[in-house]
Design a protein around this nucleic acid. Structure first.
Lengths: 354, 354
DNA sequence: CAGTATACTGCACACGTGTGCATGACTCGT
DNA sequence: ACGAGTCATGCACACGTGTGCAGTATACTG
């Protein structure tokens, strides 16, 4: 029946090792190891003979054994809240690109914003002896920080601005400028002539929400507009994936609208999309009756009606820099925390008030 | 200055091993190993003493060494075309859920639909001695299959229907029913009264495109409608991420519309979104002037205007089953390829012809 | 020809963990 | 008190790779 298509290997045999090659070549495994690494210590003829033999026998080095021997595993752990979050998608891509180019493999784990799960994930990474960790979970705080620092693993956090609050030397961060982005958004609305501007936020991602909210307040104050607490919404909503954000935006829009605002600054694009859906149900025309500005510049923002004015975050770049920073740390190079500028993208969801 | 916050560890010391614990406890490392595994061979007192000591010293087992010793690494490799593809996002989540529950870690790699890159990725997985591979790339064919089979690694492919074409015993697959889904879509349009129905496809994902296209043809034929080759578009477009699909749909809609069709079945939701954008530019009202049905039931489908009628694929379930299938293979259990049913989701982008 | 430098290769250990087998101590029964 | 049996522990090897050091053979120098 099965006419031996791969006669070189028995079905359940273990993969060939350098010892196997050594036996076949009549040399010691040390010689094979050196030959495969092109060591000058081995004579050119032997070297080539062994390399060819290795190829013929279908040898692939065992990275597990190499990791055990050496100090590095060339793996990093990546922990994110949700894989389907369009924001994180681009970030992960940037991380993966740089990692692949540097020959390091990435362990992916999803935390669903659950601290306990995060702890388990980190512990798993530690057991696997990853060289470093990149984290883009927003939920981690006090005790978690200590735990993370104790692990003695180089760690880079994305959009966390962690290291600035903490003296823990193992924690580094790369961020997009939440405060600056918030001001760009609100000042855009003010520039259009709006004076009654609402904020639609979340409480599940405290740090970044607080930064964007404070920029909102400062922008209003700078323009001489008094802050109305009723214009600010940030309810205790769940957050496991971005679909929850859409629901939040959709649910909260009516009461915010009832306060008489003519424009709304949303914590992110998904919340803005939820707000758009609510407007359609209520017959509120955007941007004629209400201006909406989002945050992140997710791809979906271009596809909704009307296309969303939003704050662009350099997502790909965030991921690339985070991974590069981690690589630098592994090489012992000094690194510096970075805050990347954001950019206002004006589309069709904002207009002067009527 | 730094008041020894973690006096247990010097900054660059290696993590504690069972040998360290053994020395501290005055026993051999074998005893420690057994004690930590709760072996009955070790007296209860010693067992507890060692476990407590391990805890105090901050011991975490070295999974690399365990992997080297044992036959399993408890890791799997996952290779996908694009991380930001909303379809794959849900799939990955299903995979990760099941993997986490089974204590296996997932290596993530992105291929960008590039065969060379796929080869490198697979080789890396092999070096890392992953227990198995899950692949959701559509581009792999002949030589790649052989390579994959030669690796002697259990492999599960998603939406590939690979194993049915091939006798390679290591390749298994789990799929959503492309043909059935296509018929659901087209029969829905026929049921609404459409007779001039176009197909907007892609050539970059040959296998699935072919299946959906053939179901389109069969559905028309079954309804007694003659197939017009001009109604079928599947240009050689690039595919690195779903943004390319949007561009494709947007670019192709005008010429398809010019053929006089009153309804269009799109290869996936992103192409449908592109078509919607083009309609908006042209002033074509959906669904009054034109009905559009997508495929996948991506979340964005709910957020566009009008919300998209589409074919729901059980994305999360696909991922879960794929991972479970792989776990079964690792346990030596027999597995069977699966084809999951799809579901028609009627929203607002389809209506009877005028 | 003797002595030394040079080129190449093997030995043995290390990395951290798991486990079959032998060893040692202790208990029990007669 | 002595042999048999039980219980707890250590020894030694294995997994696959990398590397310092020693050893051997050859070439070269005077």
């Amino acid at each position: 029946m099965a006419t031996g298509q791969t006669q070189e290997k028995a079905p359940n045999s273990r993969p060939v090792s350098i010892q196997d090659i050594a036996s076949a070549a009549g040399v010691s495994h040390s010689t094979v190891s050196r030959a495969l690494h092109n060591s000058e210590l081995i004579s050119p003829e032997v070297r080539q003979r062994i390399q060819q033999l290795a190829q013929e026998m279908g040898y692939t080095p065992n990275a597990v054994a190499q990791s055990l021997k050496g100090q590095r595993t060339n793996t990093v752990g990546l922990v994110i809240t949700s894989i389907s979050d369009p924001f994180l998608g681009r970030v992960v891509r940037g991380i993966e690109d740089v990692a692949q180019a540097a020959n390091v493999s990435v362990f992916l784990s999803i935390s669903y914003n659950d601290p306990d799960r995060e702890m388990e994930i980190i512990e798993t990474f530690q057991r696997r002896r990853v060289d470093g960790v990149i984290s883009s979970t927003s939920q981690i705080r006090g005790p978690y920080y200590e735990r993370l620092a104790r692990l003695n693993m180089p760690t880079v956090m994305i959009n966390q601005q962690a290291a600035s609050d903490s003296e823990l030397s193992q924690l580094h961060s790369v961020d997009a400028d939440d405060y600056g982005g918030g001001r760009q958004a609100v000042e855009h609305l003010i520039g259009l002539g709006h004076t009654r501007i609402g904020y639609l936020g979340v409480s599940s991602r405290m740090a970044s929400n607080a930064r964007r909210l404070s920029s909102y307040c400062d922008a209003l104050t700078a323009a001489g507009i008094e802050i109305n607490p009723g214009w600010i919404k940030a309810p205790p909503s769940p957050y496991q994936s971005h679909a929850d954000d859409v629901a939040t935006g959709q649910a909260l829009l009516p009461e915010l609208l009832a306060t008489g605002v003519t424009a709304i600054f949303c914590y992110n694009d998904m919340i803005a999309v939820g707000a758009l859906l609510a407007c359609r149900e209520l017959g509120v025309v955007v941007p004629d009756h209400l201006s909406i500005v989002g945050y992140d510049d997710v791809e979906t923002a271009r596809y909704v009606t009307p296309p969303l004015t939003t704050i662009h975050q350099p997502k790909l770049r965030l991921g690339e820099i985070a991974m590069q920073m981690l690589l630098d740390l592994l090489e012992g190079r000094a690194v510096q925390n970075q805050i990347l500028p954001t950019e206002l993208v004006v589309r069709a969801s904002t207009a002067p008030p009527q």
